[in-house]
């Protein structure tokens, strides 16, 4: 069986309309709703929210996505099954779904920053020494042997002043 997938990028104001339109066009199977952190992409402080809707026989799929700053209207009145996913997305990506169920899903309320955002610092990383920080060319007494690098190394993907308290 061949399956067709179509992507639709919409503005947040058209979010509910587009999903309602797809649902009424026969895309009644709700697969998932999730967030994608776009914070570091093109300098936007944004999170993307994606919904996958399919026809009941799974022959056709719609992926509907939108760029949000931090809030989006809830779609739980259109698709009740989306509630669990919206609560998860709210908790993990910090997107507020207006009109949805705001009760936390797994985490305690107000427990630090949303953990799946790239900008969220993992505390364990600060406490654990980074093995890549070792410089075999620099001996314990500070003596340099061989081609010791001039620049202090830091872990990839970690902000510059991150390891400083």
């Amino acid at each position: 069986m061949s399956r067709s997938f179509t992507w639709h990028q919409v503005e947040p104001k058209d979010w509910r309309d587009k999903i309602g339109e797809s649902r009424n066009a026969g895309f009644t199977f709700f697969d998932f709703l999730t967030g994608v952190d776009r914070e570091n992409v093109e300098g936007n402080q944004m999170c993307e929210v994606v919904v996958h809707l399919a026809k009941a026989d799974l022959s056709e799929s719609h992926f509907i996505s939108t760029q949000v700053l931090n809030e989006l209207p809830s779609i739980t009145d259109l698709i009740p099954a989306a509630q669990w996913h919206e609560r998860e997305c709210a908790e993990m990506f910090g997107v507020q779904f207006n009109g949805g169920n705001a009760k936390p899903l797994l985490r305690h309320e107000n427990l630090g920053r949303p953990p799946l955002l790239k900008s969220t610092v993992l505390a364990a990383r600060v406490l654990t020494p980074w093995p890549g920080g070792a410089e075999p060319e620099i001996k314990e007494d500070g003596r340099k042997v061989g081609n010791a690098s001039r620049r202090r190394q830091r872990p990839p993907g970690v902000p510059e002043n991150w390891l400083k308290p």
Binding site: T128, W130, P131, G132, A134, P136, Q153, P155, P156, G157
Partner: peptide, 13 residues
Amino acid sequence: VRECPAWCISLDS
């Protein structure tokens, strides 16, 4: 050692 995202490799030379 420096690229490992899990920080699981260590090396001395």
